[in-house]
């Protein structure tokens, strides 16, 4: 039995220690807003906040995660920066199919929390998530708007 802190709540989960955080979130806590895309930290669909930093939950074990505060997309609107990011995402209509967007929103939230007014270079470095619908320009515009609003 492991205890993990997700969205401000302590959850007891029964899982092997090497189980990726992603699958504990999805299968044991029912938090399916965090997506499986590649399983090898390439695509970023599974991005969550770990002590406020964007991390790929497919490549972090639940054992390691247990020592940290985890924030998922389900709690994003309770995050002051996250709420702004979501509003900008809606205004700029960033999502198309939407599957990668939980991860994109989490990555943008981490970026703007650490760097409220990022340069285009900083946006490029932080936003490495893949979007197969090619919404990159809308995402960049939304990040710009969220930074403005901050």
């Amino acid at each position: 039995m492991l205890e993990i802190n997700v969205n401000g709540q302590i959850h007891r989960v029964e899982a092997e220690g090497d189980t990726p955080l992603l699958w504990v979130l999805r299968e044991q806590l029912g938090l399916t807003g965090t997506k499986y895309g590649c399983g090898v930290a390439q695509c970023g669909a599974c991005t969550v906040l770990v002590d406020g930093e964007a991390m790929r939950s497919c490549s972090m074990t639940v054992e390691v995660a247990a020592a940290h505060r985890i924030t998922t997309i389900e709690a994003i609107e309770a995050h002051p920066v996250g709420r702004r990011v979501v509003e900008a995402w809606v205004a700029h209509q960033a999502p198309q199919c939407g599957y990668c967007q939980s991860g994109q929103v989490m990555a943008a939230t981490a970026l703007l929390t650490a760097t409220p007014k990022p340069t285009p270079e900083q946006v490029r470095e932080a936003m490495t998530n893949i979007c197969r619908c090619g919404t990159y320009n809308a995402i960049a515009a939304a990040i710009g708007a969220a930074a403005e609003a901050g």
Partner: peptide
């Protein structure tokens, strides 16, 4: 569907 897709819903 934009808000639902921006909040994992």
């Amino acid at each position: 569907d934009v808000r639902a897709k921006s909040t994992g819903n």
